[in-house]
Write a protein that binds this DNA or RNA. Structure first.
Length: 407
RNA sequence: GCGAUCGUAGUUCAGUUGGUUAGAACGCCGGCUUGUGAUGCCGGAGGUCGCGGGUUCGAGUCCCGUCGAUCGCCCCA
C-alpha cells in the first residue's frame, strides 16, 4: 500500500467477512422480531440541531458535555451527529404530528457517533438497533418492549446474559432519592474516590455502581430507592414485574442500576453478561449489551406535550461479538468455464440460473486447468462445468432441476 | 481525559547481545501432475519493518515524539 493512502478515522471500522456476516445477521434477526411485535420502521436523519440532544439528554451528561461531534454548517447553525436515537425520534414525533398514531411502536437502526476513547466493543462510529413505544404510559408497554428484547437475544442464540431491572420512580421520587444520596455521601465525601467526589456534583446516582473499593464501603448503608418510591411508582413497578413473569421473561432486581441520561423515569434496565460467562469474556469491559428504560419527561424537555414513552437500544457490534463469526451462505451453484471458448455459453447459463432463483457464482479467470479446483473450494451445492460444446457437466445436488433450467 | 502493552509481505507470525541483498506459512499469479478432478511438485509477484526525528561506522532491533490498535479507569449500547 502506498504510504500516502489516507487512513481510516480513529474509532471507525471497516467491517467485512465473518464479522460483516454476523453484523448483518443481527440486523436481519432484529427486523424479523420487530415485525413479530408489530413495530413500524422509521428512518431519522443522522444529524440534528445540537439543541435537540443538549436539551433532551441533559447538558451535564458526559455524552453532551464532551462526547458529541458538533459542528457549524455553512449557514452558521450548530449541528450534531446523533450520539443516540431517542432524542431524534422524540423530535420527529413532535415535528411530524405522529401523536395521531399513538401509541406508536417504532423500530430503527443505524450509525451513531460519540467522541470516546476506542476500546473493544466501543467505537466512535458505532451502530445500534432501537425500539421505542411512544404515547403509552402503562406498564404493559414496558413489558412488551422487554419481551421483544428477550426474544431477540434468544433468537440470536445469545446466552449467559441476564436482564437487570430497576425503577427510578417518578420525577418526585427520583428527586427525593437523589437529594438523600447527596446528603448521605456528602458526609463521607473525603473518603470517596476522586471520581465519586466529582459524581457527587454531577450524577450522584452513579456512585452506586462504582467499582472503587473506597466507595463500596459506603454502598450497603446508602439510601435505597424503595424508601422513596411513591405509592403510584411502587404499583407501576409491581405491574411491570408481574407482567414480565406472565410473559415468561426472566429478570433480576438490580437496586443500584441507574441511567446516565437525565430523561429516564420509572423502569430502567440493562441486559448484562453473567459474571464469568463466555459472553462476559467476549465483551471485555463493555458490559451492557442492551439498555433502556422509560422516559416520560423527555417530550416536555423538547417543548412538546407530556408524553409517556419507553425504549431501548442495543449495540450491533456488541451483539455481533456474542453471536460470533459467521460464514456467508454457501452458493447453490458455481459455474466453471474450463475453456475460454465456452465463456458465452456459460454466461447465458449463469443468468438463467440466477433468474430461476439459484445463488450462483462463476469462475472464468486464471489458469484454465486450475479453475475446477477453485470451484470445488467454494463449497457450492452444485458445480456446472463448461469443458466444450459437447461436454457440459452438472455435479452435486438438484441435477435434473438445473438441467431443465439450462435446456 | 488518565494508565499499561503493542505496531515487520494481503493475513498470521519469526527475526539472536545493533552487523552483508529482511524470512516462513497461508493466500494470490503462472507452469507441471491429476482428468471426475479438492492431492502433489516447480516457479513468480508482493515489505523504504506505522510515521517523523535522534544515538551510532552501522538501527526492524536502542532513545524521544507522533499516529493507530489492544487492555484497564471513566462513560455507555
Amino acid at each position: 500500500m502506498a504510504n500516502n493512502t489516507p487512513k481510516a478515522i480513529r474509532g471507525t471500522q471497516d467491517i467485512f467477512g465473518p464479522d460483516a456476516e454476523a453484523f448483518s445477521h443481527v440486523v436481519e434477526t432484529f427486523e424479523r422480531v420487530r415485525k413479530l411485535y408489530r413495530f413500524r420502521r422509521a428512518e431519522m436523519p443522522v444529524f440534528e440541531k445540537t439543541e435537540v440532544f443538549a436539551r433532551a439528554i441533559g447538558e451535564t451528561t458526559d455524552v453532551v458535555s464532551k462526547e458529541m461531534y458538533s459542528f457549524e454548517d455553512r449557514g452558521g447553525e450548530s449541528l450534531t451527529l446523533r450520539p443516540e436515537f431517542t432524542a431524534g425520534i422524540a423530535r420527529a414525533y413532535l415535528t411530524n404530528g405522529w401523536q395521531q398514531h399513538a401509541p406508536l411502536k417504532l423500530a430503527t437502526h443505524g450509525p451513531l457517533f460519540r467522541y470516546e476513547r476506542p476500546q473493544k466493543g466501543r467505537y466512535r462510529q458505532f451502530h445500534q438497533i432501537d425500539a421505542e413505544i411512544i404515547g403509552a404510559g402503562e406498564p404493559q408497554a414496558d413489558v412488551e418492549l422487554l419481551a421483544m428484547a428477550d426474544q431477540l437475544l434468544r433468537e440470536l442464540g445469545i446466552s449467559g446474559v441476564t436482564l437487570q431491572l430497576n425503577t427510578l420512580g417518578d420525577g418526585e421520587t427520583r428527586g427525593a432519592w437523589r437529594a438523600a444520596l447527596i446528603e448521605y455521601f456528602s458526609k463521607v465525601r473525603g473518603d470517596l474516590s476522586e471520581d465519586s467526589q466529582e459524581r457527587l456534583e454531577k450524577n450522584p446516582l452513579r456512585i452506586l455502581d462504582s467499582k472503587d473499593r473506597r466507595d463500596k464501603a459506603f454502598l450497603a448503608d446508602a439510601p435505597r430507592i424503595d424508601e422513596f418510591l411513591s405509592d403510584e411508582a411502587g404499583i407501576f413497578f409491581e405491574d411491570v414485574k408481574s407482567g414480565l413473569k406472565a410473559a415468561g421473561v426472566e429478570f433480576k432486581r438490580a437496586e443500584s442500576l441507574v441511567r446516565g441520561l437525565d430523561y429516564y423515569r420509572h423502569t430502567a434496565f440493562e441486559f448484562i453478561p453473567d459474571e464469568g460467562s463466555a459472553a462476559a469474556d467476549a465483551l471485555g469491559a463493555q458490559s451492557t449489551v442492551l439498555g433502556g428504560g422509560r422516559y416520560d419527561g423527555l417530550m416536555e424537555s423538547l417543548g412538546g406535550p407530556a408524553t409517556p414513552a419507553v425504549g431501548w437500544a442495543a449495540g450491533i457490534e456488541r451483539l455481533a461479538m456474542l453471536v460470533g463469526e459467521r460464514e456467508a451462505d454457501r452458493p447453490d451453484i458455481v459455474v466453471v468455464v474450463e475453456n475460454d471458448a465456452m465463456l458465452g455459453e456459460a454466461t447465458k447459463a449463469l443468468s438463467k440460473l440466477r433468474a430461476e432463483g439459484f445463488s450462483a457464482d462463476m469462475i472464468a479467470t486464471g489458469s484454465e486447468r486450475k479453475r475446477f479446483t477453485k470451484a470445488q473450494k467454494m463449497d457450492a451445492r452444485s458445480i456446472v462445468s463448461f469443458v466444450s460444446s459437447e461436454s457440459v457437466k452438472i455435479q452435486g445436488e438438484r441435477q435434473s432441476e438445473i438441467e431443465s433450467v439450462l435446456a
